[in-house]
Amino acid sequence: MNIVIGTVLLWALAFEALRRMRRDAPDQLPALWVRTRNLMIFMVPRVVVGLLGAGFIAELLPVDQIQRGFGEGSGLIGVALASVLGAATPGGPFVAFAIGAAALKAGAGWPALIAYVTAWSVMNLNRAIVYELPLMGRRFTLVRAAVALPLPFVLGALALMFPA
């Protein structure tokens, strides 16, 4: 359902962009189609192969152990462990937030959970390998990973210092 809504919304935007192209720069349309075709040829094999790889890797990773691992964590070690596990959690938001919710029920603290969700958001290895590296290139991926790396630890530590 989510995919359908997003697709409809994006096509509305795409048609609006095409309408403007026809109005303002009709002579550029052939160049646009060449680029669109090139980018599609570039992206489709990467997305298909990436999704297949992600599916197989998710099957091999012990997701239930990830949840157990940071459910018991506490303090800075718990934050660090949760950060690593967050980066390693495969799959979409459903998996990560379900693990987070289960860990919360099992007694995980907010600092570890913040580190986990933040690490999953910014460091997500799954997304980096499937999408970011092939689409954006090594330089962009490494630069962004380098500046994002401290964030889960910093936010987890902040949550430790100022308990809500």
Binding site: I3, G6, T7, L10, W11, L13, A14, A17, L18, R20, M21, D24, A25, Q28, A31, L32, R35, T36, L39, M40, M43, V44, V47, L51
Partner: peptide, 18 residues
């Protein structure tokens, strides 16, 4: 995902022109 990707690609390629 394909239709969604195609729409995204059209938008992304049109942006530098528009």
């Amino acid at each position: 995902l394909l239709p969604k990707i195609a729409a995204g690609v059209v938008i992304a390629t049109a942006l530098p022109f528009l």
